[in-house]
Every structure is written in C-alpha cells, then in structure tokens.
Simulated scan of single mutants.
Amino acid sequence: MRVGVVTFPGSLDDRDAQRAVRAAGAEPVALWHGDADLHGVDAVVLPGGFSYGDYLRCGAIARFAPVMDRLVPAAQGGLPVLGICNGFQVLCESHLLPGALIRNDHRKFVCRDQRLRIENASTAWTGDYAAGQEIVVPLKNGEGGYVADERTLDALEAEGRVVARYLGDNPNGSYRDIAGVSNERGNVVGLMPHPEHAVEPGFGPTTDGLAFFTSVLHQVVSA
C-alpha cells in the first residue's frame, strides 16, 4: 500500500508523517504541492506545519496548490485523506470538512502531550481504535480552535462525525472540545493533535498514534 504525504512550502511534519506511514507497514510516497497528479497512491496525509507561511489564513493558500486540484475530487470520490494540524486547516479551507480553525482562545501557542477520547472508530483512519478509547499524543498549535455554527455542530454530533475530543482542560477553545472531525463518508478526517509524533517507543509520550496509520492500511487492504 502506498500513502502519499504532501509537502507544501512551510511543511515541517512531512518527514514525521512519512516515518509513521512506514512504521505502520505501508510505503510512504512524497508528494510535492506543485504535483499535477497523485502518482497512484492509495491514501494521502496532509501534514502539520505552516504552509505558505500561514499568510492570509492557515491553509488558505495551500487550498489552491496544484496538488489539491487532484486531491479534492479524489477525496470526494472516496480516497482516504488525513489532515493533521495544518492539514486539518487545509481540509476546512478546501471545504472537504466543515468549520474552521481559529487562533487559540488564550492567544498563546500550546505544545504539550494531550489526552484524547476516540469518539468514532468507524472512519478510514480510526478503525483500529475502540469507540471511547483514551489515548495520549502530542499537540502543538497556535490556531487550533475548532469552530462552526450551532447547526453544523449539532449535525456533526448527531451523525457521529466528531472523531476525537479533548479530555481535561480544553487546550485551545475548540467548540465542544472537538479535536477532530470527519466527512459524511468517513474517508476524510481532520485532526488537530499529532499522532505521527506518537508511533515509536522512545520517540513520543506513547505509541497511541500509530493506529491512525494502521487503520487506513487495513481499510484499503480490506476494501
């Protein structure tokens, strides 16, 4: 299985995402923001960082990268896509996911190990978890507050599209403690914390993040 990891100018977690893909047993494929195609990958990760320097808004310019011209329709057609941190912002700007990510309510950058609860274990990226499972992965963001109107939030809750929720103190003011959401089909997931930094013993607080990457492998193999 081949998983593409997109590098935008300003990406800084792309190599970590590639390592996580490899640790899960898949082949990472480096995709460049200017690529005109997806090179036949089976899934795609949009990594964390500061694409295009976060000018205008986080993810606002990356949304118009040539690779996104191929990725958006592919995701709409069922290609598994995971957006982590800045990648989550790009997915919202691309309207593949609802809502938006805004500046943390305390106006400070946060970097810490974060407790999460997996709310939906039926997406392409969470199938190896159990619903209600608690995990710990790193979190690092300055604009990680997830917001949406009440109607959208109610729909996400009712449809089971809240993928993960913060436990303990809310780190950034995200509405309803939401840490990640999915599209209706469950193939597109956006997550503000960083599972790719928790996949190997000794290189993170836990190995709890690895199941995001093994999940998609199992999903594609069994499809």
Score class of each variant (00 low, 15 high):
residue 110 V to N: 08
residue 10 G to P: 09
residue 154 D to K: 14
residue 195 P to M: 02
residue 119 E to Y: 09
residue 37 D to T: 15
residue 64 F to C: 11
residue 187 N to Q: 09
residue 37 D to Q: 15
residue 33 H to G: 01
residue 221 V to A: 14
residue 61 I to R: 12
residue 162 V to E: 05
residue 68 M to L: 15
residue 95 H to K: 15
residue 89 Q to C: 09
residue 104 N to H: 05
residue 216 V to E: 00
residue 157 E to A: 15
residue 88 F to W: 10
residue 17 A to F: 01
residue 174 S to N: 09
residue 98 P to I: 07
residue 38 L to D: 03
residue 96 L to W: 02
residue 209 G to H: 01
residue 205 P to C: 04
residue 186 G to A: 10
residue 186 G to C: 09
residue 215 S to E: 06
residue 37 D to S: 15
residue 100 A to R: 15
residue 69 D to Y: 10
residue 153 L to Y: 13
residue 62 A to E: 03
residue 172 N to L: 11
residue 207 T to F: 01
residue 53 G to H: 11
residue 54 D to L: 14
residue 49 G to F: 06
residue 106 H to W: 10
residue 150 E to N: 14
residue 37 D to F: 03
residue 128 D to W: 02
residue 44 V to T: 05
residue 13 D to H: 08
residue 11 S to H: 05
residue 162 V to F: 07
residue 122 S to G: 10
residue 223 A to L: 13
residue 175 Y to D: 15
residue 95 H to G: 07
residue 199 V to E: 01
residue 180 G to K: 00
residue 34 G to P: 00
residue 188 V to R: 01
residue 73 P to D: 05
residue 136 V to H: 02
residue 60 A to P: 08
residue 68 M to E: 04
residue 104 N to S: 12
residue 13 D to E: 12
residue 180 G to S: 07
residue 33 H to W: 12
residue 218 H to T: 07
residue 170 N to Y: 11
residue 222 S to D: 13
residue 83 G to L: 04
residue 10 G to M: 06
residue 136 V to S: 09
residue 24 A to M: 12
residue 166 Y to V: 10
residue 67 V to P: 01
residue 173 G to H: 11
residue 115 R to L: 12
residue 82 L to E: 02
residue 214 T to H: 06
residue 74 A to I: 13
residue 113 D to V: 06
residue 210 L to Q: 02
residue 152 T to S: 12
residue 136 V to Y: 00
residue 101 L to P: 07
residue 105 D to N: 15
